[in-house]
């Protein structure tokens, strides 16, 4: 079994290649995993221990207190629910808007297409910090702050999804549409039944990424959702920290990190088979 390279060649080259890959994978594993393990380790250490020294003891003591403290906060579940609603809706919204627009930019002709696409690409260069004040004003004027709508809508204006989906649609072979057109299918039905299913890997990447962005967004919820009932998890956890959490609650903080990171990781694991799904068939060759 080899990687992408289905091509088994002379044995020596193949072996060197495999060793190189193994060494690379092992070092990446260490690079990525060590800080993560470090964080998980800290989350199971008593706060008092962390405030003193010698954090490199693997013998313990360990504790669940940091997690218990976290889950005793009843509002946490409300924030979790808010984050789920906001991130879920953002994913749905971004997927719909981006695949529609990406299809049109990637496969259809219409007046001003290239210029509109250029306009959309330009959006990638706009830093959030430079639009956040005006956005806040827009929602203030509408009296829409402290609502799910206000938390979801700004995320839908990000152009990355359109960019990704346009590329994905453009990469599909032309023959797909021709067959559909011969059958007299409408543009929408070509999009929906023929082309969209082919872009599932791109859609899955986009879904994961959108969920991630929305879940971890901090600045916009901070100034839009100002009532605790509307806090997102990321925002609420930050608010729950006292001024000097680094000193008094490093353990709780890292426990928060683990709890906040898990849902996104689960989403990734659920979606990743769509990204790398086709490989299975390929490797069986």
């Amino acid at each position: 079994m080899s990687a992408v390279a289905i091509a088994p060649i002379n044995t020596r080259g193949r072996q060197t290649w495999a060793w190189l890959r193994l060494a690379f994978c092992a070092s990446m594993l260490a690079f990525v995993l060590l800080p993560l393990l470090w964080a998980v380790y800290l989350s199971f250490r008593p706060n008092v221990e962390l405030m003193r020294h010698a954090p490199l003891k693997l013998t313990g003591p360990y504790t669940l207190d940091n997690y218990i403290e976290l889950f005793r906060n009843a509002t946490l579940f409300r924030w979790f629910f808010n984050s789920m609603v906001v991130s879920g809706a953002s994913v749905a919204g971004v997927l719909v808007l981006s695949s529609l627009a990406g299809f049109a930019f990637g496969r259809l002709q219409f007046p001003g297409r290239n210029w509109l696409y250029a306009l959309v690409l330009m959006g990638l260069a706009i830093p959030d910090q430079s639009v956040i004040l005006t956005r806040h004003q827009i929602f203030s004027d509408l009296h829409w702050h402290n609502s799910y709508l206000a938390l979801i809508l700004p995320g839908l204006s990000a152009p990355l999804g359109v960019f990704l989906m346009t590329e994905a649609f453009r990469a599909l072979p032309k023959s797909l549409e021709d067959a559909a057109r011969l059958d007299g299918a409408s543009t929408f039905s070509t999009f929906w039944h023929i082309l969209l299913p082919q872009t599932v890997p791109a859609l899955a990447s986009l879904a994961i990424y959108t969920f991630l962005l929305s879940w971890n967004d901090y600045w916009w919820p901070l100034i839009s959702a100002t009532r605790p009932a509307m806090f997102t998890l990321t925002e609420g956890m930050a608010a729950a920290q006292s001024n000097y959490i680094e000193v008094t609650g490093m353990g709780v903080l890292t426990a928060q990190a683990v709890v906040a990171g898990l849902p996104v990781l689960i989403i990734y694991i659920l979606f990743q088979k769509h990204i790398v799904g086709a490989v299975t068939g390929m490797v069986k060759l």
Binding site: W38, A39, Y218, T234, L253, T254, G261, L265, Y268, Q272
Partner: peptide, 17 residues
Amino acid sequence: SIVFASSVLSVTVMTIV
């Protein structure tokens, strides 16, 4: 999944780590 796991942390958490 592990590589991706490093990206799921919010910036607040990532910097603490």
